[in-house]
Design a protein around this nucleic acid. Structure first.
Length: 693
DNA sequence: GTTTACGCATCCCCG
DNA sequence: ATGCGTAAAC
């Protein structure tokens, strides 16, 4: 790493990057003067990522060692993107720079210091499904009668515990406030959660919450370690600060406690993670909690047309709790966002598919388009439509590759290779074996609970029921083989090449697909020299290979289907926001919580501000699978002042044409309804189309 | 004790 | 449609 000995700004012209030219004055100010505690309030599309990237590049150019910089982002995608941009700015990869999500940074640190807080460095990370399985096992162990009185499901129990820990509240308080209907069961729930915590600890395992909580614990209880780390991280930069919770903000505070150079960037209007106990007050109150804070504002929007921005501004204005916003656009005028009521979700999907094709023929590549929705399963109808028309798409959200059952089965084997105490993995692996059911598996696990190594387990004589003898023998042989091998890809192939393959064949008609998945997994694993880093990657960044993906080649252009949450920080030329009816978005469940409506509105704001040029709001006026129910347009559409949107009406012939099998897209497109300027949306008759049915 | 068939609820968002 | 919990069959 080349060292620049530049102390004053007068020497900037010797740096490679011309900051004055490539940044606007607001951004430049942050890059040059972001020392000490800094709060950067960055509106959507204001070049937030650009600013952080240049700030990092600037620090590196000024001779700060990469290892002294900690860059925390909210998603893996954002992290990768930023590092890639820093690399292209500097011409070389900033080796040694600490970058990643809170969870991945916490993991890296905990792997070093695990023994200080009672874990081994090979502790297992439990994902959501694993955590639920363990909670379920605890409910069973405690012999709780879940039928007499409705007991919260393992997932709900875990969510209660998770929220309590992330928000710093007691479990009792959380259940009292957010789960009133279960409050009378609180003492039982507490027993389950206590047992869950104990068994998780015994299994040398951490769930996602533990990664954050244990790091905080380490920093608070071990002042020497806190000082060492904080001394290392001279500059701490945090992206999406509006989405941090109390635990995360305290970690940031501790890690920046020696040098005090902590720069947080965020947009309170885009805070959409309160279900993870994100505190909007973290960003709103940053100047108070960090005396001497310099506050910067990035208010110029480079992304969207004025018409799109007008909708976004009108939306966010309805919220009370926020900094004042004044986003202005620098782009030229274009068409207003379109409002498209459809007769049904099928017609909605048809419209989107057609419009996608039309935009494409007008010159927008598929990769510059996205369809966004509130909940992962809202995309189903659309997926059928896209498939029917051979429009390649990439689906983001919902089940991830590493969460698929067969992949997790194999992973469970690998986990045992590193952590013999991993109860969840044992249960999973044992349950796959013929002749071993729940009871036998539990008995085996309790017999090997205290074993210190895999070898010890395998050499121990255990009480195994006769019907399970053969299976247990097979498993032992496999585990023995695994224990002699280190290369991750070989380990995977050992599992898939053996008895597990027979299990797949017997169990699943689509076993060929699943085997193919597993081969993909093995190939993926070839990039990893040691098993631990592979498993960490699998647990913390599940964005390898989407489940549902249409279109074969990797670089083929694809339209993106995504939840709004996952779309944060991204942008496209054309964006469709679908299912904008009142029983879907705002989500009725969210409305029962304090501040829920404002958060849903911010979510709508995020969706709106993803678009550069074309924006479509679509919704079906009927819903329901079997019984047709009328649904109302989303509150967020109704509350917009008149004149901001252009209403598109779909003609009946549109439906008729679309109903034809093999209908050519361009023919149907001809039937696309004419456009009429919208009147005041709130006064519009949304049921008009029904008369025509 | 294990396996399987079937009725039932489910399904918000993320690491 | 999918997946889970429960009941009866192997």
């Amino acid at each position: 790493m080349k060292e620049f000995v530049l102390q004053d700004e007068g020497n900037q012209n010797r740096l490679k990057i011309n900051y004055q030219e490539e940044l606007n004055p607001e951004q430049l100010d942050v890059v040059l003067h972001g020392d000490g505690p800094c709060l950067v309030l960055a509106g959507a599309g204001s070049g937030k990522t650009r600013t952080i990237t240049y700030r990092v590049a600037y620090l590196l150019e000024r001779g700060v060692a990469p290892g002294a910089i900690l860059l925390v982002t909210f998603t893996n995608k954002a992290s990768k993107e930023m590092l890639a941009r820093v690399e292209s700015l500097l011409g070389s990869y900033p080796t040694g720079l600490w970058g990643g999500t809170f969870h991945s940074v916490a993991n890296r640190l905990l792997r070093i210091y695990a023994s200080e807080i009672g874990y081994t460095k090979n502790f297992t990370i439990l994902d959501e499904e694993d955590a639920k399985a363990l909670v379920k096992a605890c409910v069973q162990t405690l012999d709780i009668d879940t039928s007499a009185r409705r007991f919260p499901s393992p997932g709900v129990v875990h969510a209660m515990a998770s929220y309590a820990r992330n928000s710093g509240q007691t479990l009792r308080a959380v259940v009292e406030n957010k789960y009133q209907n279960f409050y009378e069961l609180i003492s039982t729930i507490e027993r389950v959660v206590d047992l869950y915590e104990a068994r998780k600890k015994d299994a040398d395992s951490m769930d996602f919450d533990d990664l954050l909580l244990k790091l905080r614990e380490l920093l608070f209880t071990r002042d020497d370690i806190r000082r060492r780390l904080a001394a290392q991280f001279r500059y701490v930069l945090v992206d999406e600060y509006q989405d941090t919770n109390v635990v995360q903000s305290e970690i940031v505070r501790q890690l920046s406690s020696e040098h005090g150079h902590v720069l947080v960037v965020g947009d309170d209007a885009q805070s959409i993670y309160s279900f993870r106990a994100a505190q909007i007050r973290n960003i709103l109150g940053f100047p108070e909690t960090h005396p001497g804070t310099k506050t910067f504002r990035l208010t110029t929007n480079y992304r969207s047309t004025p018409e799109i921005l007008a909708v976004a501004n009108a939306t966010i204005q309805k919220n009370q709790e926020q900094f004042e916003k004044n986003l202005s656009s620098v782009r030229g005028s274009a068409e207003r966002p379109n409002l498209v009521p459809a007769q049904s979700s099928a017609q909605e999907a048809q419209f989107i598919a057609q419009r996608v094709l039309a935009l494409r023929s007008e010159g927008t590549p598929l990769s510059e388009m996205a369809v966004l929705f509130r909940a992962a399963f809202h995309s189903q109808t659309l997926e059928f439509e896209l498939m029917k028309r051979d429009i390649p798409y990439e689906y983001r959200g919902g089940m991830k590759f590493f969460e698929r059952a067969h992949v997790k089965d194999v992973i469970a084997h690998l986990r045992l290779r590193l952590n013999t105490h991993d109860e969840v993995a044992w249960m999973r692996v044992l349950s796959l074996m013929n002749g071993i059911g729940l009871a036998t598996a539990q008995r085996i696990v309790s017999q090997i609970r205290d074993a210190s190594s895999l070898d010890e387990v395998l050499t121990r004589s255990l009480a195994i029921p006769s019907r399970a003898q053969a299976s247990w023998g097979t498993l032992c042989k496999l585990l023995l083989k695994l224990s002699r091998e280190d290369l991750p890809s070989d380990l995977i192939r050992m599992v898939t090449g053996g008895d597990y393959q027979d299990y797949l064949r017997a169990e699943y008609p689509d076993f060929m697909d699943r085997l193919e998945d597993l081969e993909q997994f093995a190939i993926f694993a070839e990039g990893y020299a040691d098993l631990r880093s592979l498993l960490d990657e699998v647990s913390l960044s599940a964005d390898f290979g989407s489940v549902r993906e249409q279109g074969s080649s990797e670089d083929e252009e694809k339209i993106v289907l995504s939840t709004i949450h996952q779309a944060k920080g991204l942008e496209w030329d054309a964006v469709f926001v679908m299912h904008l009816c009142n029983d879907k978005f705002p989500n009725p469940r969210a409305l029962t919580e304090a501040g829920g409506l404002e958060e849903e509105r911010r979510l709508f704001y995020v969706a709106t501000t993803r678009a550069r040029k074309h924006l479509f709001f679509t919704y079906p006026i009927t819903s329901g699978y079997d019984t047709m129910m009328l649904s109302q347009p989303s509150l967020f559409l109704e509350e917009l002042p008149g004149g901001l949107l252009e209403e598109v009406r779909l003609k009946r012939s549109f439906m008729a044409g679309a109903a034809l099998e093999n209908s050519d897209a361009t023919i149907v497109l001809d039937a696309l309804g004419e456009r009429t300027p919208s009147k005041d949306v709130s006064k519009m008759s949304f049921l008009r189309g029904v008369d025509e049915l």
